[in-house]
Design a protein around this nucleic acid. Sequence first.
DNA 1: TAGTGGTCTAGACCACTTC
DNA 2: AAGTGGTCTAGACCACTAA
Lengths: 259, 259
Amino acid sequence: MKPKWRELAEKFEEEIRTGERAPGSPMPEIRDLVEKGERSKETVHKAYKALEAQGLVTSSRGRGTVVREHVPLKRLGIARYDKAKWRDGDEVAFIADRVASGRSYLRGEQTQTVSEVEAPPLVARAHGIPEGARVYARARLVKEGDQPTHSLTSYYRPEHVEGTRLVDPGPGPAGKGGGFRVLYDAGYEIDHMTEELRARVPSAEEIQLLQLHPGEWVVELHRTTCTADGTVVEFAIGVHAATRFSWSYDFKVPDSAQE
Amino acid sequence: MKPKWRELAEKFEEEIRTGERAPGSPMPEIRDLVEKGERSKETVHKAYKALEAQGLVTSSRGRGTVVREHVPLKRLGIARYDKAKWRDGDEVAFIADRVASGRSYLRGEQTQTVSEVEAPPLVARAHGIPEGARVYARARLVKEGDQPTHSLTSYYRPEHVEGTRLVDPGPGPAGKGGGFRVLYDAGYEIDHMTEELRARVPSAEEIQLLQLHPGEWVVELHRTTCTADGTVVEFAIGVHAATRFSWSYDFKVPDSAQE
DNA sequence: TAGTGGTCTAGACCACTTC
DNA sequence: AAGTGGTCTAGACCACTAA
């Protein structure tokens, strides 16, 4: 037997997907449904929470529940790291994807803080240094308008970045060309990277920071960036709202017998 | 003000993460907590559901709520497509990752059904054919023991696979070397691929099929496989339980100025 | 059959937004 | 102040498991 709250949620889901309930239009108020039907407040509430977790509606106290506008996915491909963008041009690497997808970059959409910290285990392993060694952490929160899209924290080894503008703890992006340009100017040209992705439940702080919808998951991205000789010059951890992005990778089918 | 159910959930989360509550050990029963503390049944229930969504506990009627065993992540890298594995060896490409991570392959862990269908929009676009054109859909559910890990449906164009054992609608894997080997034998050697990932809420059928825990998300993977001349010979859609996998990709930093 | 989690209700109260 | 969603309770009943 299907629970009543699920039946109700599926009924509304159908109505939203067919367009019968248009984006931006208000959903019936909980108390109205309680009066009209036989359902109780908690039951309707559960149904609405399920719809909210699927990204179909938004609820807020005082304002009511409305059908969500469709937010287009931001597609992240490896082209966003194109050397031409950060080495020759004046785009900042981290916002290259936004430029590529036709959105304009506005100043003030990225805040940054730089601090010296002891390397957590994950960071130490990536850089091949002892746990607790000193590293620079450069954390930024990337926004699009008022809406935060993801957080990104890069970890650098002191000998690679000390004396550069990367460790200048001022606010704002790292300047023309971004972090990769700074490393390039310091003699460390990035050559290849590894990205690793996994999905998980967000922490309470992340829900607040990224303004996540209730029930929404995040994708954690680990990026290890190396120079041609294999030196790791950056390890970065990104946390993305899971429904706002897709990731795409092209690669040759490997053939270990030929190498 | 933090809701009580969240407070309670965080208390238990802490206890589980520190190991104070060991995997396999039972959580306090809901009715006991109601008797001892001032909380009500629904409130404790909400807290338990939150823990379950995080993958920390498992609840079932009659059996109670227990701390979950830690399930190791399965790491998927592009090495799982190594030509040496499916062309020269006798491993099936789709289970190569399991072999790599030390798990043994058991017969009967993969079921398959082949059918001729009209190409859905996504499939048509990937193959560059009209919507509704006939394609072969090869759907399998991959399990590890009793636990399903992911579903994978490959779409092939008739002219590439007709007459091969791929479209033989018998059960079981596609045979020695898997689907890529069949394509290879038919004169279509795969050369490069694109994988695209996104996370989303599972459908009701997927929850049942993959035995997902309540609140758990899935990652949908789109794989487009091409020969050296750019012909798309396979488009596959995979649905993975989000917490059971991580994906990893290595690539050179692109440089459009040099090509 | 006893004991577990899951659903549902009716009503109270709280937090927030809008007027 | 009025009206929205969110939390909480006490208790009823249901669904499932194990002895």
